[in-house]
Design a binder for these strands. Structure first.
Lengths: 352, 352
DNA sequence: CCTATTAAATGGAACGTTCCAATAAATCAA
DNA sequence: TTGATTTATTGGAACGTTCCATTTAATAGG
């Protein structure tokens, strides 16, 4: 109820019988003030119910202590993990991370970015929304604000990126399927407006080529990056003359959709059709059957991104090296051997 | 690279050949300035690469335009939904919501709250971390800051709450199980340091009583509110002399764990043991079998909470009515009839 | 006991806005 | 034309800090 006018350092000063400057000094933990004075002041701070006004302080101080994390989809545990990882390291560095969600909407992203700038953030970590225009960050760049991309990157941009090794992940997964004897491989889900898509698809293609598999474009089926998209992909693929026997999915959500659709058709994921996901979200382990997936350690990438940002801020630069995080294929039970090729002669050996 | 000293309204003023006051006026979209002047100024704003300093503005203005949303676990899609719902309405009200995660840690929560206060937020929406001490918000309350709790409440507190009707949800779910013929009902997961737990358990108990079921305390098994907790609960319950035939789970995660553990024992969730969850997260629909659960519409509650907050801010009050959101039981396939009681006479009718 | 040195505390200007009171310019009524 | 009114624009003070240059107090050196 009360809400009497907010207390300022002047109120503290009066209460403690010192000057405002002295109060400011103890607020900053300066060693210049006599311990007994500090105690006195701290008591006054408590008594008047003071809350520090960081906005006023930032008016004078060179840099603020808040950084913005702009996430494209907080609802996706995968990105939420990323945010949580970042938070962890920022917290222990005395930096306050504010999270904002763009809901995969570039317009919203623009607004959010503007707000964060106005708030005077010291840096920005962004997982850009799908459909972000290449120039969207140009203004922030020339303003000299440290920015890093996490998880996703923009087509042509000099902004440092912290992301998993999508290419290699896809390669590993594809090789795994080939090792199981599959020859008709599909790539399900995702769309070409995402750089990640090209990276993962690139790994898939390279693996096919290297291992002597014919990667027909017809089996590369774009789609939504969720369960629904996965279901749709499976349906179209099975309607083909020569349907695939296995699929690498753009992400786990797509993979779950594929498994759902298989079940609906009375097929058993694994024995009847091999599916591997990407991201290795927590549910992957608990699904029926447990999903083979490429683990990317998003929390770890978040931590990494936070460290990069801290370094950028400290060295007041806007440049940093990219960081490509290691991935590893977690083999579970969603990939049986190909029943057809099984009877045929041994698979071709892998080059490289 | 550049980062020449930040442009201020004075720079704009010089560039446009007007006074700083004029610039301030156009910045606020005042109707007092001549349109042509406004255009001139806006051009200058663009030219000098100006970014508004909200910190400086807040120094004068009564209230800021940012509100803080403090979430106990962003990793849980359930709470993430809540945040997303709030964001939606704040955005369209010109309010910038900053999300902070406490990771269910009261200490962290304290820090986060402090930061948000220092940042000068206009209000706070909080889903308090487990183990929050009753006095944790006392200071903020007496500071006269509008606060609302979402999803969770604190034992004794006058702060308004926006939460689902946990009691009724649990009642409905329990009645459903009884309707299926079950007589030995268990309540799995959760712990008594959560108010929500008491609410849900209360609904369970009331339903048992009303429907003439003997709710033995032995069958109320506390546990972690995740898959692991669910698995543990099932194990302990099956080790009993007279094990239950059905369970209401504290939330969906617990329910998933229960189903997992059933499978592991060669039992089929549904036919062999009925399980119902709470929250109705997205996976519930897609699980094997699809999980019967109490839907709470967290995004809707988030929107509601945001509206309440906006009203509190506008009417500069710290009081508001609680809002208890409707729930509804989504019946899917995880609850078969009790095989044992099936052969017995018809179940007792429900009173009330 | 006085001066030089160090330690503590202080006043004032500055940071980038908003808002009020005041001015200047334009319009109107007579 | 002149004063009254309205419309646009402006200077100055204030907001709550930090930081620098000073002042004051305490201590040491001779």
């Amino acid at each position: 109820m009360a809400s009497r006018a907010k207390a300022t350092i002047f109120d503290i000063a009066r209460e403690a019988g010192v000057s405002k400057s002295t109060v400011s000094l103890v607020l900053q933990g300066s060693g210049l003030i006599r311990p007994e004075t500090a105690v006195k002041v701290r008591k006054a701070i408590e008594d008047v119910g003071y809350v520090y006004n960081r906005g006023a302080a930032n008016l004078r101080k060179a840099h603020s202590n808040v950084i913005g994390m702009v996430i494209n989809d907080l609802t996706n545990p995968f990105f939420a993990e990323l945010a949580v990882g970042m938070e962890r390291v920022f917290q222990s560095a005395g930096i306050v991370p504010f999270i904002a969600n763009t809901a995969e909407n570039p317009v919203r992203q623009e607004e959010v970015l503007k707000s964060l700038m106005e708030q005077g953030v010291a840096g920005l970590i962004v997982s850009p929304a799908r459909g972000t225009t290449p120039g969207a960050f140009r203004r922030l760049e020339i303003a000299g604000l440290p920015i890093a991309f996490a998880m996703r990157r923009l087509p042509e941009s000099r902004i440092p990126v912290i992301a998993p090794d999508n290419h290699r992940g896809a390669y590993l997964a594809t090789a795994h399927l080939v090792g199981k004897g599959h020859r008709r491989l599909a790539f399900f889900g995702g769309s070409s407006d995402l750089v990640v898509y090209h990276e993962r698809l690139g790994g898939f293609r390279e693996a096919c080529e290297t291992l002597g598999i014919d990667a027909r474009d017809a089996l590369i089926i774009e789609g939504e990056t969720n369960r629904k998209g996965g279901m749709a992909c499976l349906e179209t693929s099975l309607a083909m003359a020569e349907p695939p026997t296995a699929a690498l999915c753009f992400n786990d959500a797509v993979a779950f959709g594929v498994m759902l659709a298989l079940r609906k058709r009375g097929l058993e994921p694994g024995p009847d059709f091999a599916v591997v996901g990407f991201d290795d979200v927590v549910e992957a382990e608990h699904y029926m059957p447990p999903l083979t997936s490429v683990a990317v350690d998003s929390a770890g990438l978040g931590e990494r991104a936070a460290h990069v940002m801290i370094k950028m801020i400290q060295s007041r630069t806007t440049r940093a090296e990219d960081h490509i995080g290691a991935v590893n294929l977690v083999v579970r039970e969603s990939c049986g051997p190909d029943r057809r090729t099984q009877k045929r002669p041994a698979p071709t050996g892998a080059a490289t």
